[in-house]
């Protein structure tokens, strides 16, 4: 699965949309979902929570492991995707669209993120 050009990417394998009215949507990449294997449990931050770029804000469990979910940007959580909590396998099936994880009202401009090409290079390297 190729990395969509319109997204920005973090070293922790999250993606982020360009802000609309100051709000960005966040998810994990296909590369991350594939590395984890079948995802069986997703714990997301709650609406109203403040998240900080590079800090853990949730958890992803697969058959084999437990991984922290990091936020690629700082701000306030304004919406979470309850579909992926109910059906964690969705993260494996459609990581870049239906399985977005949460939306953040940005408190500052995201920094240190990569373009699709840069992220592809990182994960193929």
């Amino acid at each position: 699965m190729s990395n969509p050009q319109h997204l920005q990417y973090s070293e922790d394998h999250e993606w982020l949309t360009a802000a609309e009215d100051g709000v960005s949507t966040i998810g994990i990449t296909a590369h991350a979902a594939n590395a984890l294997g079948d995802i069986v449990y997703v714990q997301l931050p709650e609406v109203g929570d403040t998240v900080t770029a590079g800090e853990t804000c949730g958890e992803l469990e697969s058959t084999k492991s437990v991984s922290d979910l990091f936020s690629p940007a700082s701000g306030e959580v304004v919406e979470v995707n309850s579909d992926v909590v109910d059906d964690p396998a969705k993260v494996n099936a459609e990581p870049f669209d239906g399985a977005w994880l949460f939306k953040v009202k940005l408190s500052e401009e995201p920094a240190g993120l990569m373009s699709a090409d840069e992220y592809t290079k990182l994960t193929n390297g």
Partner: peptide, 8 residues
């Protein structure tokens, strides 16, 4: 081999 596709 750990898995080929979905382990489930």
């Amino acid at each position: 081999p750990l898995r080929y596709g979905s382990e489930r």
